[in-house]
């Protein structure tokens, strides 16, 4: 996907942004993503299980994340599914972060009385 195509996917919804951001730290399973999104957003974004898996399904379909089997813990009968950020997902997250930074910078300049 080219830069222009990446730009077409922006802006991301807040929950998508936080899910991708959570996965930027490494592979995570569903519950870990849920808690991490809550922490990253200071408790503001509180995803339900249904909303989280709806978003994960869409992100998998778009190829922004991938799903893997993690090795099961001794007390677990079957491997847990983990989600990992794909290269495309990382590019999109970077583009969104740059967009938000640029917005924040412009706002800061304008509020400080300079030219935006």
């Amino acid at each position: 996907m080219t830069t222009i195509q990446t730009q077409d996917e922006l802006p991301l919804t807040e929950s998508t942004f936080f899910i991708l951001l959570s996965l930027a730290g490494g592979p995570r399973h569903g519950y870990a993503i849920l808690k991490d999104v809550q922490t990253l957003s200071d408790g503001r974004v509180n995803l339900s299980t249904g909303t989280l898996y709806g978003a994960l399904s869409r992100l998998l379909e778009q190829g922004w994340i991938a799903r893997l089997d993690s090795s099961p813990a001794p007390e677990e009968a079957r491997p847990r599914k983990e989600y990992i950020l794909s290269d495309l997902g990382r590019r999109i997250l970077n583009a969104e972060t740059a967009r938000l930074s640029s917005l924040a910078e412009r706002a800061r300049l304008r509020l400080a009385g300079g030219e935006a």
Partner: peptide, 17 residues
Amino acid sequence: PFRTTFGCEMSEVFGLG
């Protein structure tokens, strides 16, 4: 199809919550 793919995981996450 959604339930087949994510049903078990969703139940697991719901259980932890």
